[in-house]
Amino acid sequence: MPRAGLTPATVVREAAVLADEVGYDRLTLAALAGRLGVALPSLYKHVRGVDALHQKLAVLAAAELADVLTTAAAGRAGADALRA
């Protein structure tokens, strides 16, 4: 049974924070498990592996970028929206 409060979304968000701290290329499932206070095999209940985690991080980054761009362009039109 997954640890209470630990979901795929929380795993990915914490992985993003860890990647920002140690570098994306140094992000490991073992380091993430330690940070979350779970055994490494427990992470596999939330992500299928490091490749799946990287894919989920890419989706998160794209969503965050879309939010920033949407906010910057809100209420603007044409070239003004592009510059924002």
Rank of each mutant, 00 (worst) to 15 (best):
S42W: 11
R35P: 12
A73P: 00
A39Y: 01
D51G: 03
A84R: 09
G49A: 02
A9T: 15
A19P: 13
V12H: 04
E64N: 08
P2R: 15
A63G: 08
P8N: 07
A31P: 07
V17Y: 02
V11W: 02
L27S: 09
A30G: 11
G23Q: 05
V11D: 04
A16Y: 01
A52Q: 07
H46D: 07
D67R: 11
V59T: 11
T10V: 12
H54R: 15
L57F: 14
A30Q: 14
Y24W: 09
L40R: 14
E14V: 00
L65E: 10
P2A: 13
T10D: 03
T28S: 15
R83D: 08
V11T: 15
G75E: 04
A72I: 06
V47C: 04
T71L: 08
D51R: 15
R76I: 00
R83T: 11
V68I: 09
M1H: 11
D51M: 04
A33W: 08
R13N: 05
G75S: 08
A61C: 00
A79Q: 06
L69I: 04
H54I: 02
V38Q: 05
A62W: 05
P2Y: 04
P2N: 01
H46E: 13
G23W: 07
T7W: 07
V22L: 10
L6P: 15
A4P: 14
A16C: 10
L57W: 06
Y24K: 12
A62R: 14
T10I: 12
R76A: 08
A30Y: 06
A31F: 02
A4I: 07
V22G: 11
H54V: 03
L43Q: 07
E21H: 04
K45C: 04
Y44P: 10
R83H: 10
A77K: 01
V47E: 03
V50Y: 00
R35E: 02
G5I: 00
L60I: 06
G34P: 03
T10H: 01
D20I: 00
L43M: 10
K45Y: 13
P8V: 04
